[in-house]
Simulated assay, not measured.
Amino acid sequence: MSSPKLVAVGDNCLDAYLTRGVVTAGGNALNVAAQWRRGGWPARYFGVVGNDAEGEILLEEIETAGLSRGDVERRPGDTAVTLLRDEAGDRQFLLESLGVGDNYMPADEHYRAIAAADWVHLGTNANPDLVRRLVARRVPFSVDVSTKHLAIPLEGVPLLFASGPDGEEPVAPLTNALRAAGARQVVLTCGRRGAFFDDGATIRHAPAIPVDVVDTCGAGDSFIASFLASFRFGGLDAAEALRIAAAAAGETCLHVGGFPQQPRPIPDWLPAKYAEFVTPAEGR
C-alpha cells in the first residue's frame, strides 16, 4: 500500500513549560499525526479545542505541522492544558486538564472519515464508546492506554500501546493481562529498559537508545508513530520496527515538545488563568 490513509484521533493540549517559560503544542494523538506527516505519510488529525486563546495557538501549530485545522472541532469551553516544570528532562506535572477534549467523540462527518482509514490511532483517554464502535465496525486501529491499562474496554482491540515496568520484573504478566482483557497485540514501552511486543506467540524486545535528554515529552508518541508506519505499512517485522521506533523516540528527546516546532513564550494571561496551580509551585 503506497499511500495508506492514516488517522490519529483524540487528545491535544497546550504544554506550558514553566521552568523554561515556553509553550508547545502536544498530546499523544496530535503528536502521532504530526510525526506521521514529518515522515511523509498522508496523515490526518481529528480532535477538539476550546473557543479560547489556547485553542487558537494549537490550531496554528496544527497547520504548521501540515495538518488541517478543518479536522479539528471548536467547542465552548477550555482547551486542554498541561502545566509542568522540568529539570534535566524530568517532568513534574502541576496540572493536566483535558478541557473540552474529555471523553471526545468525533462529529458524524469526521467519524465517517475515521472509519474509512487504513489505520486509526486513538490517543490517551480515548472515549470507550468510540473504541467499541471501531471494534464493531472492524476498523484497523491502535490505542494508547498509557498507565491506565484497563480503564477502557479492550475486547477486540487490534493493537495496544501501554507503559510497562522499567525495572527488572518480567513484562509477561502485564502483556498477558492486557491480552486476556481482549487486546490482540501489545506493545509495552519501558523507559530506559526499551520496548516489548507481544502477539501471544512470542515476545520481542528492542533496547532504548541512550541520548542526552533535553525533554522526554512526546518520545513515546514518536515511538508509536514510527512503529505503526514500519510494522503495519513498511513491511518490517516487529523486532525491526521496535528498533526503528526506539531511534525515533530517542531523537524526540533531543528537543522541547512532542514534535519539532518553535516554542512560544508563555503568554502573560496563561499563568494568571491558572494561578492556583502555578503560584504554589513557584513558591517552593
Rank of each mutant, 00 (worst) to 15 (best):
Ala241Ser: 15
Ser2Cys: 05
Ser142Tyr: 05
Ile224Ala: 04
Trp269Asn: 09
Asp102Trp: 12
Gly218Asn: 11
Pro4Cys: 13
Val186Gln: 04
Glu168His: 10
Ala181Lys: 03
Asp221Asn: 08
Asn31Leu: 08
Ala126Tyr: 01
Asp129Val: 15
Val186Met: 06
Gly250Phe: 06
Ala249Glu: 01
Met105Ala: 13
Trp269Phe: 14
Gly250Asn: 11
Arg74Phe: 08
Ala53Phe: 10
Leu84Asp: 04
Asn12Cys: 14
Thr24Glu: 06
Pro106Phe: 05
Arg193Ile: 01
Gly250Cys: 03
Phe196Lys: 05
Glu56Gln: 14
Gly89Tyr: 08
His121Trp: 09
Phe227Ala: 05
Arg112Asn: 12
Ala88His: 14
Leu159Gln: 01
Pro106Arg: 05
Ala246Cys: 15
Ala107Cys: 13
Val22His: 12
Gly21Thr: 11
Ser222Tyr: 00
Arg184Met: 12
Asp215His: 09
Ala16Cys: 15
Cys190Asn: 06
Tyr104Arg: 04
Pro210Asn: 05
Leu95His: 02
Val157His: 01
Glu87Tyr: 09
Leu95Trp: 09
Pro76Val: 13
Gly55Lys: 00
Ala80Asp: 04
Phe161Trp: 02
Ser163Pro: 06
Glu87Gln: 11
Leu59Gly: 01
Ala195Ile: 06
Arg44Pro: 00
Tyr274Val: 00
Glu54Pro: 03
Ile266Arg: 14
Glu240Asn: 10
Ser163Asp: 03
Ile152Glu: 13
Leu122Cys: 07
Arg74Ser: 12
Asp11Glu: 14
Ala177Lys: 06
Gly167Lys: 07
Pro140Lys: 09
Asp268Tyr: 01
Gly235Ala: 07
Asp11Met: 04
Gln185Val: 08
Asp212Asn: 12
Ala136Val: 08
Gly164Ala: 06
Gly258Ser: 10
Asp15Ser: 08
Ser3Trp: 07
Arg133Met: 06
Leu59Trp: 02
Glu240Tyr: 02
Ala275Cys: 08
Met1Ala: 14
Gly220Ile: 00
Leu98Pro: 13
Phe259Met: 07
Ala117Leu: 10
Ala180Ser: 10
His121Val: 10
Ser230Asn: 14
Leu178Tyr: 02
Asp129Gln: 15
His121Ile: 09
Asn51Tyr: 04
Glu56Asp: 14
Thr279Ala: 15
Ile57Asp: 04
Leu154Ile: 06
Asp11Thr: 14
Ala116Gly: 07
Arg132Gln: 15
Glu56Ala: 14
Gly218Leu: 09
Asn31Ala: 10
Leu134Gly: 05
Asp11Pro: 10
Pro153Asn: 07
Thr216Asn: 03
Gly101Phe: 04
His205Arg: 11
Val213Asp: 05
Asp268Met: 04
Pro173Cys: 09
Cys13Asp: 02
Leu67Lys: 00
Leu130Met: 11
Gln262Trp: 03
Glu240Met: 12
Val187Tyr: 00
Gly218Cys: 10
